[in-house]
Design a binder for these strands. Structure first.
Lengths: 118, 118
DNA sequence: TCCTTAGTTCAAAAGTTATTGAACAATTGG
DNA sequence: CCAATTGTTCAATAACTTTTGAACTAAGGA
């Protein structure tokens, strides 16, 4: 039950750039970067589109080698492949994320954090 | 007879990434970077496609703010907007070019340099 | 077992991008 | 002025991408 991911040498520069050239996906990456280390499931991104649409965008990110999706029960835990991207394209992800953080035109992933019990 | 270019604050991250997410345009940018300072006319890129097709790709690069095109006679002299891109998205262009230089899958702009008189 | 939750797959529709050739415009050199 | 050079525009087509809803699978909890 593992999903297909390219290995590091199969990650292509134009494909990665093309995949990041979409506001929804850039917003996903920005959010993943802001929660680095925390594995997030897909429904965390529902602010950015419908379930089906997110499935599509998350698959694009995964197939391009930008994210990793690990199957945990009925969830897919999504993380950025930061180390792999840094090794393959040094500095690229950092500069993209830094620019994305400052981009007010990108859609935001809402603030409905997990309920903290009273 | 000047062509339209976005000004620096109009340059959009997803648009730039999307525009660079195409092998032909990435090859153009890589070649421009390798000849930085030298203004090149469009026909320098004819290895990468037909005249019409290059007109299309060069317009995309210009409209995204990646290149500047200056009209000189019947020529358009194309340069990278490196300073503007560095100011807007620090480190991005450097990392993209560094990765593009190492990418054997990108098409190459041929070696037919200007004839050196005998 | 049955229901719910999480996410995928499929096919269709809509929208966008890339590529082509023919026709056009503008400048330059003879 | 005429012809060549440089590059653009236009319309058509082909190819891809995004978005949608309905149907589906798989795991987990009651």
């Amino acid at each position: 039950m593992t999903l297909p991911h390219p290995n590091i040498d199969q990650i292509s520069l134009p494909i990665v750039l093309g995949v990041l050239g979409d506001p929804t996906r850039l917003a996903i990456v920005r959010y993943l970067a802001s929660k680095e280390g925390v594995p997030l499931n897909c429904s965390r991104f529902l602010d950015l589109g419908s379930k089906t649409n997110l499935s599509y965008h998350l698959a694009k990110l995964r197939e391009a080698g930008v994210t990793r999706a690990e199957v945990v029960g009925t969830n897919r835990m999504i993380t950025l492949r930061r180390a792999d991207l840094d090794a393959r394209f040094p500095g690229l992800l950092d500069s993209v994320i830094a620019a994305a953080v400052d981009d007010p035109a990108l859609p935001a992933v809402g603030g409905h954090d997990i309920d903290v019990p009273a």
